[in-house]
C-alpha cells in the first residue's frame, strides 16, 4: 500500500485536475451559447438566398443557366471540405467526424482530395494517407463571414476550373447540448429542385412562372449569388461545427470532473484507512513501550 504522504499528494493533484476541467466546462458552456446564437443569426440570410435560387431554378432553361448548377457527366475527382477542431479534449468529437468521413469516402481514397479546417482533421487525414490540398486552422473563436468566405470560394474555384467534379461538405451538426451528429452535404453542383418539401421548408410561396427581368444580366447575378451562397453554407457549417465542438468538450469535461471527484472520494477513504492504521500502530507501540517500562520498574 502506498504511503500516506504519497496518497495525500495524489489526492491534491486530482483535486487540481478537477478544478481545471470544471473551469474548461464553464468556458465551453458559454461558448456553445454564443456559437448557437451566431448560427441562428445567419439563418434568415441563408433561407432567403435559397429561396431566390429556387425561384431562379423555376425559370425556363435552368439546365444551362450556370456552370455551378450543372451536373458533370463523369466524376473523376471529388473534393471534401472536412471541418474539425484545432484542439483536442473534446471527447469523441474529432474521431466521430473522421470516422464518418471514412465511411463515406474511405473506398474512394484515390479520387478524393481534402480541404480541412482544423488541425485535428488535417493530422488524422494525413496519417491515413489522404490527399490534403489545402488546410485552414487557427480560425478566430467567433469567425465572421469575411474570415471564412475564402474557404467556400476556394472550393467554387476548384470546381469551376474543372479540378474537381463534385464538392462535399463533412461537418458535425449541432442538435442539442448532448447530441452532435456528423453529416455530409453536397455543395456543388448545387442541387436545386422544386420538390414540395423544399418549397415548404423554405417558404417559397411564389411559384411564379413569369420570367425575371435581370439587371445587369442573369449570368452576372448568378455569378454573384451562387458562389456567395456556397460560401455561406460553409460558414454555417463552420458555426455548427464550433457549437458541436464546444458542446462535446463541455460534456467531456463534465465527465472528467465527475470522475475526478469519484476518484478523490475513493482515495480519501483509502487514505483515511491508512492514516488510522498508522495511528493504531503508533498507539500500540506506545502502549507496548509503557507496559515494558512499567514491568521493568516493578
Amino acid at each position: 500500500m502506498a504511503s500516506a504522504r504519497d496518497m495525500r499528494l495524489r489526492i491534491r493533484s486530482i483535486k487540481n485536475i478537477a478544478q481545471v476541467t470544471r473551469a474548461l466546462e464553464a468556458v465551453s458552456a458559454s461558448k456553445v451559447n454564443k456559437a448557437v446564437a451566431q448560427v441562428e443569426g445567419t439563418r434568415p440570410y441563408a433561407d432567403k438566398a435559397w429561396q431566390v435560387l429556387q425561384h431562379v431554378a423555376m425559370q425556363p432553361g435552368r439546365e444551362t443557366l450556370h456552370p455551378l448548377l450543372t451536373d458533370r457527366t463523369e466524376v473523376k475527382k471529388t473534393l471534401v471540405l472536412l471541418l474539425s477542431s484545432d484542439r483536442g479534449l473534446a471527447g469523441a468529437y474529432n474521431t466521430n467526424v473522421i470516422r464518418f468521413n471514412m465511411q463515406n469516402f474511405g473506398d474512394k481514397h484515390d479520387i478524393t482530395e481534402y480541404i480541412t479546417v482544423g488541425k485535428k482533421g488535417r493530422d488524422l487525414i494525413m496519417r491515413r494517407g489522404g490527399n490534403v490540398t489545402a488546410e485552414f486552422s487557427d480560425l478566430p473563436a467567433a469567425p465572421s463571414f469575411m474570415d471564412v468566405s475564402a474557404i467556400g470560394h476556394l472550393a467554387v474555384e476548384k470546381f469551376l476550373e474543372g479540378e474537381v467534379d463534385e464538392v462535399y461538405l463533412v461537418y458535425t451538426d449541432y442538435v442539442n447540448i448532448a447530441k452532435q451528429v456528423p453529416v455530409m452535404k453536397k455543395l456543388l453542383p448545387l442541387e436545386v429542385d422544386d420538390g414540395d418539401d423544399l418549397v415548404q421548408e423554405y417558404g417559397a410561396t411564389q411559384k411564379t412562372a413569369a420570367a425575371y427581368i435581370y439587371e445587369p444580366s442573369a449570368e452576372e447575378i448568378l455569378d454573384e449569388i451562387i458562389p456567395n451562397f456556397t460560401a455561406l453554407q460553409v460558414y454555417q457549417a463552420i458555426l455548427e461545427s464550433l457549437a458541436s465542438e464546444h458542446a462535446a468538450r463541455m460534456v467531456a469535461m463534465r465527465n472528467a470532473t465527475d470522475n475526478a471527484h469519484e476518484l478523490v472520494g475513493a482515495l480519501q477513504l483509502e487514505y483515511n484507512k491508512v492514516r488510522q492504521q498508522t495511528i493504531t500502530g503508533d498507539i500500540l507501540d506506545i502502549a507496548g513501550g509503557a507496559e515494558a517500562l512499567a514491568q521493568s520498574e516493578a
Binding site: V52, H55, V56, T208, A210, A211, Y212, I213, Y214, E215, P216, A218, E220, I221, E224
Partner: peptide, 16 residues
C-alpha cells in the same frame, strides 16, 4: 443599373 423605386405589383426582377 441605377436607383429604382419599387411599388406594389412590380414585374419580377433580379438585380445586384
Amino acid at each position: 443599373g441605377g436607383i429604382m423605386g419599387i411599388l406594389p405589383n412590380h414585374a419580377p426582377l433580379l438585380t445586384t
